[in-house]
């Protein structure tokens, strides 16, 4: 089960330049929270601060009432690239988590096999990373982040490098794996659809300096199916997020750029 995460007035500056304005956020235990926003909005920075891999300039983060001062270890991280260790086969790549934490090998080998099977990688346990496709590698990386049953799962644009079809499948599989153990999740993404499909709550961030623009609830029932993306409820939330982006000037509709007289001519 997940632990609650409290982010209190966290800021980050690099060489006096503010990358992240004071940000506060509370994640309930077992909650799936996505952070969406354009590049440069500080979402990856925030993720690293929560992981204890980076220190906030001011403010603090606590996981289950304990202030984060060093890298968290009750944690699983999935990066944009799979970051698999080329010299280990799939099973050993997942098991490095157990090795690092001196956990019993046999118990976790069974767990790892079980997870890999659930992620559709049955029969690939002894394959090496160079034999896997991009999607398969990222699945291994997700299994590695979950095998030790962490309370906190952090994902930094995990499906950003995958093609659209693979991404759809990955969303469904991630939801399935997450529902098994329900860690608290921070999921950073560029994709609005992905965020709405997966999340309990969505944090919309704005760039320069990075700040929280809005926080939206996603009251859609679980477990969600891909077909849900066609429903009015789903698209209402997507539109709301896009509306925020439009207001920030991150995306612009075509009409906004065309001078007024042109539209008149076209109408005639």
């Amino acid at each position: 089960m997940g632990k609650p995460v409290r982010i209190e007035q966290v800021t980050k500056s690099y060489h006096g330049l503010e990358a992240l304005s004071p940000t506060s956020l509370f994640l309930e235990e077992g909650e799936f929270v996505s952070i969406v926003g354009p590049s440069g909005c500080g979402k990856s920075t925030l993720l690293r601060i929560v992981a204890g891999l980076d220190t906030p300039t001011t403010g603090r983060v606590s996981v289950a009432d304990r202030v984060v001062t060093q890298p968290e270890t009750d944690i699983g991280i999935v990066f944009q690239s799979p970051v698999l260790l080329d010299w280990r086969n799939v099973l050993d790549n997942v098991l490095i988590q157990a090795e690092a934490r001196k956990l019993p090998h046999d118990v976790y080998a069974a767990r790892a096999r079980d997870l890999l099977a659930a992620a559709g990688l049955k029969g690939f346990e002894n394959a090496y990373p160079h034999q896997l496709s991009g999607g398969m590698s990222q699945r291994v990386s997700v299994c590695r982040a979950l095998v030790h049953n962490p309370s906190l799962l952090l994902m930094d644009e995990p499906f950003g490098a995958l093609d659209a079809l693979t991404r759809d499948q990955m969303m469904v599989d991630l939801q399935k794996l997450w529902l098994r153990s329900r860690p608290t999740v921070v999921f950073v993404t560029h994709s609005v659809q992905e965020a709405v499909f997966l999340s309990d709550r969505i944090v919309v961030m704005a760039p320069r300096p990075g700040r929280v623009e809005a926080v939206l609830d996603v009251p859609l029932p679980r477990s969600r199916r891909l077909s849900m993306r066609g429903t009015a409820e789903f698209n209402a939330i997507v539109d709301e997020i896009l509306h925020h982006f439009q207001r920030m000037g991150v995306i612009r509709d075509e009409e906004d750029e065309i001078p007024e007289n042109t539209t008149v001519e076209m109408a005639l």
């Binding site: 891999l53 890298p71 270890t73 990066f79 490095i96 690092a100």
Partner: peptide
């Protein structure tokens, strides 16, 4: 890669294991 070092640190690897395993 930086992410690989982050991974090692998030697993709580000691300096020695970080060297041996990564």
């Amino acid at each position: 890669p930086k992410d690989m070092i982050f991974l090692g640190r998030s697993m709580g690897l000691s300096a020695r294991d970080m060297f041996r395993k990564i």
